[in-house]
């Protein structure tokens, strides 16, 4: 009850934000929601099923490029192009997953393979003809006002609400997944693969389901990215630093929890922005200061709150008792 109430309050606050926020603050909040969404999508794989992906930009980039290319070259609206992006990313996820899991690749080795696939694809897109290469793929912007959801063109406020709807939607989806049989199977194989298998769980299929679903949802974030920023560069869309930024939120917030990815994004993104802004205001040209800050926060979290912020916060607020209805929000404490 308390959790639902807090969630509704948070949602109301986010919904009301455009009424009071400056354009700059709104743009920061879009980034917060964007990373909360992607963190949630990544969390399905790592937090729920225990499969570490360090190359999640692969799916962001594929979703972004597929939908953007269809729009730029054939005028296909985003509402249709997104399905292409999701499909391509799901196929890529299924390919990465079935290759690794068929050959029993686990843990760090699987993580390395996810990096490799993202990097291959980045280099591929730098040289692929017709998609702009390193020079970038640009989406024409006809209007920056109004609301055109089908083509995903419109005002910043529209993009903000789209991001909010996506984040709320994926939260509900994850909540549903955790309470469903597949959620139990994922957590079982995260905890102990051998024991899970002995209880009748087809681990290949369960892992593949996690990767494919996570990839498809992540691609949806990529579609948003493409139509919001209107410019795609392989270095950014598929770059390793972005993969790290995706996973920081859930790790800081609390792996495997429902609130972790949201909380992580709310904590990290504004702080990162503030530090960039502050160093610039002080006259430093400190490129990479944000990355330095992210690195330090990761160190601090692993040292002091290895379960993440949310499990600790939940204990502080005494919301544990709320939680014996099996919504699975117990986290992946290791």
């Amino acid at each position: 009850m308390k959790q639902s109430l807090a969630l509704l309050l948070l949602l109301a606050a986010f919904a009301a934000a455009p009424l009071v926020a400056s354009p700059y603050l709104l743009s920061v909040l879009v980034v917060v929601l964007y990373y909360a969404y992607l963190g949630q999508a990544w969390n399905i794989m790592m937090g729920f099923a225990g499969q570490l992906s360090l190359g999640h930009t692969l799916y962001v980039g594929l979703g972004a490029y597929a939908s953007a290319a269809l729009f730029v070259r054939f005028g296909v609206p985003a509402a249709i192009g997104l399905w292409a992006g999701v499909l391509v990313a799901m196929l890529a996820g299924a390919a990465v997953g079935s290759l690794s899991f068929r050959f029993g690749l686990k843990g760090v080795y699987f993580a390395l393979l996810t990096i490799a696939f993202a990097e291959f694809t980045r280099i591929l897109f730098q040289h692929l003809p017709g998609l702009g290469g390193t020079g970038g793929l640009f989406l024409p912007v006809a209007e920056r006002s109004g609301v055109h959801l089908l083509t995903l063109r419109g005002s910043p406020a529209m993009f903000y609400y789209v991001a909010l709807a996506m984040t709320a939607g994926i939260f509900l989806l994850c909540r549903f997944l955790l309470a469903s049989p597949i959620g139990y199977r994922w957590r079982a194989l995260r905890e102990d693969q051998e024991a899970a298998q002995a209880l009748g769980i087809n681990i290949f299929r369960s892992k593949l389901a996690a990767v494919t679903l996570s990839a498809g949802l992540t691609a949806l974030g990529g579609v948003f990215f493409a139509f919001y920023y209107n410019a795609l560069f392989p270095d950014q869309a598929f770059g390793m630093p972005r993969s790290i930024e995706i996973i920081l939120g859930p790790i800081v917030g609390g792996l495997g929890t429902l609130f972790g990815p949201i909380l992580g994004a709310i904590i990290l993104t504004p702080l990162g922005e503030t530090i960039t802004w502050a160093t610039e205001a002080l006259g430093f040209k400190a490129a990479g200061i944000k990355q330095l800050f992210y690195g330090l926060s990761l160190l601090a979290i692993i040292k002091f709150l290895p379960d993440g912020v949310w499990p600790r916060l939940k204990r502080l607020l005494r919301w544990d008792a709320d939680n014996d209805d099996g919504d699975g929000d117990e986290g992946a404490a290791r």
């Binding site: 309470a179 469903s180 049989p181 139990y184 199977r185 957590r187 079982a188 905890e191 102990d192 051998e194 024991a195 899970a196 002995a198 209880l199 009748g200 769980i201 495997g256 014996d324 099996g326 699975g328 117990e330 986290g331 992946a332 404490a333 290791r334």
Partner: peptide, 28 residues
């Protein structure tokens, strides 16, 4: 069962058993 026990350490005792029971019945 395993000689070296393999509990799903971070799940509740009940959820551990629910995982097994989900093999016998389909709904949670």
């Amino acid at each position: 069962t395993f000689q070296l026990v393999k509990p799903f350490a971070n799940l509740s005792v009940e959820d551990n058993v629910v995982v097994g029971a989900l093999h016998a019945v389909t709904k949670v």
